[in-house]
Amino acid sequence: MKEYIVVEFMEERLSTGVPVLDRKLDGGLPPGSTVALCAPPASQAELLLSEFTSSRPTLYLTTDRTEESVSAEFRHNSGRRIPEVRYIPGDAPLDHARRLFQRLPGDSTLVVDPVDLLEREDPTRYRNFLHDLQSHVRGTDSLAVLHCLDGRSVPDQRDITEHAVDVVFQLRTDISGDRVENRLAVPKFRGGSALPETIKLEFTESVAIDTSRDIA
């Protein structure tokens, strides 16, 4: 009687830039993924965005800060890869962003920070933009990260964003007494398993996972 051995090959993943987070995600994110990073405006989400840029060449689209101010932050962190930073103006932002991401080469990262300006455009045009973005990212085995501000004025198209993307990261910041605690949830993960519990993060000049025991 013949015996057959089944060997499972794990799909190569793209790093998030945070090694311990990669391990929790079974190696990182599947190539071709689009990610929504949802976080309050007063959080340290930009540090997490900068980690996404550390592993691959990155096109960083900024919609509310100047190219120089974003680039200066990356230059301040010595040893970090400096992405190509481009400003998206308020006039026809979807068209500007589409022209830029269509230049995205293979095995690279796109960051839109924040995506709120694009979410306030016509719903049909915004859906078409997301479809075109996902098609390009999948075709180039790249990664797109959309920074979604969860503030006092959330765009009507936020539901469209979270439904369309492959992965949703939700960053929450809680202040209790003299402690500031940051926790990351991954409630949605196409091509993988959503995490059953939140991850406690430490933000200094970089991002680390707090592995110490929580004290009740």
Rank of each mutant, 00 (worst) to 15 (best):
9 F>T: 15
10 M>F: 12
11 E>P: 11
18 V>A: 03
18 V>P: 07
19 P>N: 12
20 V>T: 15
25 L>H: 05
26 D>E: 13
26 D>A: 13
30 P>M: 04
32 G>W: 02
33 S>D: 06
36 A>M: 00
39 A>S: 15
42 A>C: 09
46 E>Q: 13
47 L>Y: 15
48 L>T: 12
48 L>P: 14
49 L>I: 15
49 L>H: 12
50 S>I: 10
53 T>I: 07
53 T>N: 08
53 T>V: 13
56 R>T: 10
56 R>M: 13
56 R>I: 09
57 P>A: 08
59 L>A: 02
59 L>V: 08
62 T>C: 05
62 T>S: 08
62 T>Q: 03
63 T>V: 06
65 R>E: 12
66 T>M: 02
67 E>K: 09
72 A>M: 11
73 E>A: 14
75 R>C: 09
79 G>C: 06
83 P>Y: 05
85 V>M: 02
92 A>V: 10
98 R>W: 09
103 R>Q: 11
107 D>S: 10
111 V>I: 15
111 V>R: 06
112 V>Y: 07
115 V>W: 00
116 D>H: 02
118 L>V: 13
120 R>W: 05
120 R>K: 15
121 E>G: 14
121 E>S: 15
122 D>L: 11
122 D>Q: 12
122 D>C: 09
123 P>A: 08
125 R>K: 14
125 R>F: 07
126 Y>D: 00
130 L>M: 07
133 L>C: 08
136 H>C: 06
141 D>T: 04
147 H>N: 06
149 L>I: 06
152 R>P: 10
156 D>W: 03
157 Q>I: 02
158 R>Q: 04
158 R>G: 01
159 D>N: 02
160 I>T: 14
161 T>G: 00
164 A>H: 14
165 V>F: 02
166 D>Y: 02
167 V>D: 01
170 Q>I: 01
170 Q>W: 03
172 R>T: 05
172 R>W: 00
174 D>H: 11
175 I>T: 10
178 D>C: 03
178 D>R: 09
182 N>A: 13
191 G>A: 10
200 K>I: 01
201 L>P: 03
202 E>T: 15
202 E>N: 12
206 S>I: 07
208 A>I: 00
209 I>F: 12
210 D>W: 03
212 S>D: 14
212 S>G: 10
213 R>C: 08
216 A>M: 05
